[in-house]
């Protein structure tokens, strides 16, 4: 550890000043916009925003989809992570590679695939019509289901990664130990494995939830203007209505949620040390 403070600051400050000027300052001004009116400081930007039914719907839908996606990812991701953690080290490494692979692919590409799957002439509709289950293609795109599937596919890897790292930390012999002590598989799961991986579940859940909340591409492509979420609503408010007060309110909501989630993750990380 060096004690030369001036030298240290000279190294650290350019990055900090850059982030401050190009990031925190503009975002701060944007956030303050909702509180300003000709008469001075006001909260009317917020009351107006939440009094509009459309905004309420979008706000609630965003929360709902966030929770649904995080919950579903938790259930499926848990089963997958548990299965993966039981593989041999080599197989585990390969499967893990396949799980994180989608993270490196452009979200535009990953979301675009769902158009092929869910479109009017997509795989699902072809199958439904072909099997005689539907007379004409049904609308699957631009529905909440489409957005839900897109988000789930986009963020599931984050859940699996978090759970896998939690499962790796389960001490090797606790499961046989619990079995020897007389626990059945059901009890082993609920009394030993689940409590030991709770942290991973919270970390993964938070990552997926904030990811879903702040996603733009998926709701834009798969939801369009029919299924607006907060980010797409923000885009619309700015580009269509020129309503910067609403944009500022949405920005504040998103930042508060994202910030809270990060605080939570940080707390877990420090508690772990």
């Amino acid at each position: 550890m060096f004690s030369n403070t001036r030298e240290g600051l000279a190294l650290a400050l350019p990055a900090a000043i850059f982030a401050l000027l190009l990031f925190i300052l503009p975002v701060g001004i944007l956030l303050s916009e909702a509180f300003q009116s000709d008469a001075g400081w006001t909260l009317s930007g917020y009351t107006d925003f939440f009094s509009k039914p459309l905004n309420q719907t979008v706000f609630l839908r965003t929360l709902k989809l966030g929770v649904l996606v995080a919950g579903t990812a938790a259930v499926i991701g848990y089963a997958a992570a548990f299965s993966i953690s039981n593989l041999s080290p080599v197989a585990r490494g390969r499967v893990f590679g396949l799980v994180i692979l989608p993270l490196m692919i452009s979200p535009v590409a990953r979301t675009y695939a769902w158009i092929v799957i869910l479109g009017r002439t997509g795989i699902v509709n072809d199958a439904l019509v072909g099997l005689g289950l539907a007379d004409t293609p049904i609308r699957l795109l631009f529905t909440e289901t489409a957005v839900f599937l897109g988000l789930l596919q986009l963020f599931m890897p984050l859940m699996i990664i978090s759970l896998l790292s939690a499962m790796e930390n389960i001490p090797r012999d606790v499961i046989p130990a619990a079995r020897v002590l007389g626990a059945n598989w059901f009890q082993v799961f609920f009394r030993v494995i689940l409590p030991l991986t709770k942290e991973g579940l919270v970390v993964g859940g938070t990552l997926v939830f904030t990811g879903a909340l702040t996603a733009y591409i998926t709701p834009a492509i798969l939801g369009g203007s029919k299924v607006l979420m907060l980010e797409t609503l923000l885009y619309q408010q700015v580009n269509v209505s020129n309503d910067f007060v609403s944009a500022s309110v949405i920005a504040m909501i998103l930042i508060i949620m994202s910030f809270t989630a990060n605080l939570l993750l940080k707390r877990i990380a420090t508690a772990r040390k």
């Binding site: 240290g8 982030a19 944007l30 702040t214």
Partner: peptide, 30 residues
């Protein structure tokens, strides 16, 4: 280095990860 306000610097530098991108883009534009 032992820096005064190291925690603040850390938070400031990490802030772009916390703020959703769309907001940053809008703020910079405006």
């Amino acid at each position: 280095y032992e820096l005064p306000g190291a925690e603040t610097i850390r938070t400031v530098v990490a802030s772009p990860i916390i703020v959703p991108g769309i907001i940053v883009g809008l703020a910079l534009l405006r």
